[in-house]
Computed example of a mutant assay.
Amino acid sequence: MKDPSYLILPLAVIFIISAWNTYINTVYVGEIIQKVWEKASSFYLIIVPVLLFGLGFVRQKWKAAHQTS
């Protein structure tokens, strides 16, 4: 995307709606965060780095195997 300014308005609307819901029902949001955060954080903090490391390892081995032949 050459001009990211097209994303400003939709993101602003999303942030305003989420802020409004958080302000209205903070207890519910706290409970959801406790239930969901473990799964979401484990995905981004464990699974994604392991996948990237694995892809890098395979790519390195692939390049080394094809350089010798």
Rank of each mutant, 00 (worst) to 15 (best):
M1G: 14
K2I: 13
K2S: 11
K2V: 11
K2E: 12
D3V: 03
D3P: 00
D3I: 06
P4G: 04
P4R: 09
P4H: 05
P4K: 08
S5G: 09
Y6I: 12
Y6C: 07
Y6F: 13
L7A: 15
L7V: 09
L7G: 12
I8V: 14
L9K: 12
L9M: 10
L9Y: 07
L9R: 11
L9W: 05
L9F: 10
L9A: 15
P10M: 08
P10K: 00
P10Q: 02
P10F: 03
A12Q: 05
A12H: 01
V13S: 05
V13W: 01
I14G: 03
F15K: 00
F15Q: 01
F15W: 06
I16G: 10
I16Y: 14
I17C: 02
A19F: 01
A19S: 07
N21L: 06
T22A: 14
T22V: 10
Y23V: 06
I24F: 05
I24Q: 04
N25I: 01
N25Q: 06
T26S: 15
T26A: 14
T26M: 14
T26P: 14
T26G: 11
T26Q: 13
T26V: 12
T26H: 13
V27Q: 14
Y28H: 03
Y28M: 07
V29S: 02
V29M: 07
G30Q: 11
G30L: 12
G30V: 07
G30E: 09
E31M: 07
E31T: 05
E31W: 04
I32T: 15
I32P: 02
I33S: 05
Q34S: 10
K35Q: 10
K35G: 03
V36T: 12
W37N: 11
E38G: 14
E38P: 15
E38M: 11
K39V: 13
K39Q: 12
A40W: 05
A40C: 09
S41V: 05
S41P: 01
F43M: 09
F43P: 00
F43V: 05
F43L: 14
F43S: 01
Y44F: 15
Y44Q: 07
Y44K: 04
Y44W: 10
L45K: 06
I46H: 04
I46N: 07
I46L: 12
I46W: 07
I47G: 01
I47W: 03
I47N: 01
I47A: 08
V48C: 11
P49A: 02
P49Y: 01
V50D: 03
L52T: 04
L52R: 06
F53I: 10
G54R: 01
G54S: 09
G54M: 03
G54L: 06
L55P: 00
G56Y: 02
G56Q: 09
F57L: 13
V58E: 04
R59Y: 13
R59C: 10
R59Q: 13
R59G: 15
R59V: 05
Q60D: 04
K61S: 08
K61Q: 12
K61C: 03
K61F: 04
K61Y: 09
W62V: 02
W62K: 04
K63C: 01
A64I: 02
A64R: 07
A65P: 00
A65K: 15
H66W: 13
H66M: 13
H66K: 15
H66R: 15
T68L: 10
S69Q: 13
S69L: 12
S69N: 13
